[in-house]
């Protein structure tokens, strides 16, 4: 009898508690939050479906294997852009990754963060990460002029711009990966008489490699989609494969941009198909990053 009374009292209290969470205002609010959360996905779905529909007429071999053609919009292709983007990506990685990791290692493992100059580097990095990409294009233009290159629309020029662009990203993600390696591993190494550098090179860095690789690949997938800084370097139409870092080059996003500014529908269809190619490349890169993270990431 008394237990039943207690149970009844509890039921009343629980119901009262629920109704406070379930009044109209709260439910509307929750609905809005859900909307916010899935708004992005909705936009993406519309974007991808619309682009695929527009581009579907162009899913043919010309798309991947032909050069661009202003005379035959129906058979214009992205060969030069795809190869160019790959060349740019690799060259960018070669320049930005070692530099970025080295900077991250210094800031995480060697620097005393209380020193004023290290603090300047710190703030400066955060700031560089937010500098508009087109400004890096202007910088690359100036660098190319400084080195006396007549032609700026070459692989090297584009890679300089993109490397500058992703350097802060590489540094920041590498630092996070290094920070995730537990202090105890470093202590264990140092206590055996290893130097700071030996500790970094033989213990900390190898343990951080999966995280660094993931971050770097994500940075590169950002670089591969960039068009603005390349536009400044004058990348445009190219009808041959790049042969080296001094070869003239174009990039997939640049080709998409140029096609988008044409009025003929056939060019827009080609651009749509090109977008799908670009998105697939980015998806593949992200897939590799996720694979590395899941396969090699150690949870300490």
């Amino acid at each position: 009898m008394s237990t039943a009374a207690t149970a009844a009292a509890q039921t009343v209290r629980l119901t009262a508690g629920r109704s406070r969470e379930r009044n109209v205002g709260s439910l509307v609010f929750l609905g809005l939050l859900w909307f916010s959360l899935f708004f992005g996905v909705m936009v993406l779905v519309v974007l991808i479906i619309d682009t695929m529909l527009k581009g579907s007429v162009r899913f043919d071999s010309d798309l991947l294997f032909s050069y661009e053609s202003s005379l035959n919009p129906e058979s214009t292709g992205f060969r030069a852009g795809i190869l160019g983007s790959l060349w740019l990506m690799v060259t960018t990685a070669v320049m930005a990754v070692p530099l970025g990791i080295a900077a991250a290692v210094y800031l995480e493992e060697f620097s005393n963060s209380r020193r004023w100059y290290n603090r300047i580097i710190e703030v400066n990095l955060q700031n560089l990460a937010a500098v508009p990409s087109i400004v890096y294009g202007l910088l690359a233009v100036a660098v190319m002029a400084l080195f006396g290159f007549q032609q700026k629309n070459i692989v090297l020029g584009g890679a300089i711009a993109l490397a500058l662009l992703i350097l802060p990203v590489v540094i920041i993600t590498s630092r996070e990966a290094l920070r995730a390696v537990p202090r105890e591993i470093r202590d264990g190494s140092l206590a055996l008489g290893a130097t700071q550098w030996q500790t970094t090179w033989r213990q900390t860095l190898p343990s951080a490699i999966p995280g660094i690789a993931t971050g770097t690949i994500l940075g590169l997938s950002r670089a591969i989609g960039e068009a603005a800084p390349l536009l400044l370097l004058g990348l445009g139409a190219v009808r041959f494969d790049p042969e080296g870092v001094l070869s003239r080059v174009t990039a997939l996003p640049i080709q998409i941009y140029r096609l988008s500014t044409q009025s003929q529908v056939a060019f827009q269809e080609a651009a749509s198909a090109g977008i799908i190619v670009l998105l697939v490349m980015i998806l593949l890169l992200n897939g590799v990053a996720i694979f590395i993270r899941n396969k090699f990431q150690r949870s300490w």
Binding site: P182, E184, I185, D187, G188, L190, A191, L192, G193, Q203
Partner: peptide
Amino acid sequence: RTHIGMVFQKPNPF
């Protein structure tokens, strides 16, 4: 540290 080694609280093998 080569003369004076150390063992830590939590086992910390590499």
